[in-house]
Amino acid sequence: MSDYRTPASKVRGLGASGHGASHWISHRITAIALFCLAPVFVWMLAMSGAPDPLATRAFLASPAGAIVTLLTLTAGLAHMRTGMLEVIEDYIHKPFTRTLLVLGNTFIAAGLWLITAFALLKLAL
């Protein structure tokens, strides 16, 4: 492969975000997790009788349903946070707007994860 990076860019070792490789690595880890989890979760949810409230509640409260949903939710929200972060860093160049969007993205992912995990535990325990 040709190499288009400037020597200065290589020395800094930073991408568009201005910091290191941790996002790249965690994005791959959650991707591999979702590669296994997403098909199982989608199939189980689709076959659970959803959107009927009683059937869906029973699915989410069952041990297998609660565990698969919690795992997929955790990997999914982490993956979509780092993915959206990349999109924001690529397209939004104004520092203030970008900071607001990055913050909003993190709050949506982290807040939704905590509240949904709480809701799942409430249903399952």
Binding site: T56, T69, L112, A119
Partner: peptide, 9 residues
Amino acid sequence: SVWIILLAF
């Protein structure tokens, strides 16, 4: 996620 939250409550 929002739907799961609504179902739980």
